[in-house]
């Protein structure tokens, strides 16, 4: 549904998006991740036809964004990062106006607006002036606007920014529910959200693609050579027992409490380090309390791939 190929966007000498390529297929929910200033919003603006690209192509629903912008926009619901307001309109009036602008026929307009308000859970502010609703609600008014014409593709730019945890949870649920009927590309710099909601993540940094895959796979790839172990023994005894495990590069003790010593071990890539550690401790007669691949936190993984150290760039 969305195909981006070698997309580059320059502002003068500054390269905001650098030869970016990715695809999103029908029914996918794809998280578009990157730190602030990574080029997410610029990419999205090119996809929505708001800005032209410098080079490269992008197609949505089979239409080229540069050559057939109107057809692209007919198939697209877009929630910008800052939801703009027409303070003089009520929420329901704003949505009716947007529905009309998007060509929803007059007959079905009332129903379409009600359905969009239901989905975005804003029925309780329908009669309020857009200028008077809170930031979180305004964001949801924007979401309802994106949904009102029931487009096949949705692009949401930081849909949960500035929301409280409850609102965030609700929006995440809304986005999850959208998967049945829509293809969704949504950007965020909040990782936990992306992991919960999306079937795939695309990470960009400084305008370049850094990672593209399922969230747990990306994490696992980065973590495959690290193991955490907790055993009923002393810290020194544990270190001594782990030393002969083949492929061990480094081990860091996590201290000892209530007779249980903990350690993080780093292994050379390949093999099954957790199994090797288990076998070694069993042979040494040490009771193992906990043994697991040491997944880096999402935050540290993200930090690593966007800052370009520790974890290899995965594709």
């Amino acid at each position: 549904m969305i195909a981006v190929s070698d997309l580059t966007k320059k502002y003068g000498a500054f390269v905001a998006v650098d030869r970016l390529s990715f695809e999103v297929t029908r029914g996918e929910i794809v998280g578009f991740l990157g730190p602030n200033g990574a080029g997410k919003t610029t990419t999205i603006r090119v996809l929505t036809g708001y800005h032209p690209s410098t080079s490269g192509t992008a197609t949505l629903a089979g239409f080229d964004v540069a050559k057939d912008s109107l057809s692209v926009r007919k198939n697209l619901g877009y929630l910008p990062q800052e939801v703009p307001i027409y303070p003089e309109l009520r929420v329901v009036e704003y949505l009716r106006y947007r529905a009309a602008l998007k060509g929803v026929p007059a007959k079905g307009r009332k129903l379409a607006v009600e359905r969009a308000m239901d989905k975005a859970a804003i029925a309780d502010v329908a009669r309020k002036l857009v200028g008077n609703v809170s930031h979180g609600y305004r964001q949801r008014v924007g979401l309802a606007d994106a949904l009102v014409a029931n487009p096949p593709i949705l692009i949401l730019d930081e849909p949960t920014s500035g929301m409280d945890p409850n609102q965030r949870l609700r929006i995440k649920q809304v986005v999850k529910d959208l998967a049945a009927e829509h293809t969704v590309l949504f950007s965020s710099h909040i990782l936990a959200e992306v992991q919960d909601v999306s079937s795939r993540v695309i990470v960009i940094h400084r305008g370049r693609l850094r990672a593209d895959g399922k969230p747990h796979e990306l994490l696992a790839q980065g973590a495959s050579s690290r193991v955490f172990v907790a055993a009923r023994t002393g810290a020194q005894a544990l270190a001594a027992a782990l030393a002969p495990v083949p492929g061990l590069l480094a081990q860091a003790s996590d201290g000892e409490a209530l007779g249980i010593a903990r350690a993080h071990c780093t292994f050379a890539p390949g093999g099954d380090p957790a199994a090797a550690v288990g076998a070694q401790l069993l042979a040494a007669g040490i009771a193992v309390c906990e043994l697991r691949p040491d997944l880096p936190s999402l935050e540290s993984w993200f930090h690593a791939i966007t800052e370009g150290c520790e974890v290899e760039t995965v594709r």
Partner: peptide, 17 residues
């Protein structure tokens, strides 16, 4: 005003010429 508030973005990304 649309440019100042940013609503020009939603206006010009709607399917309207």
């Amino acid at each position: 005003e649309e440019r100042r508030t940013g609503s020009i973005e939603t206006l010009l990304t709607a399917p309207v010429r």
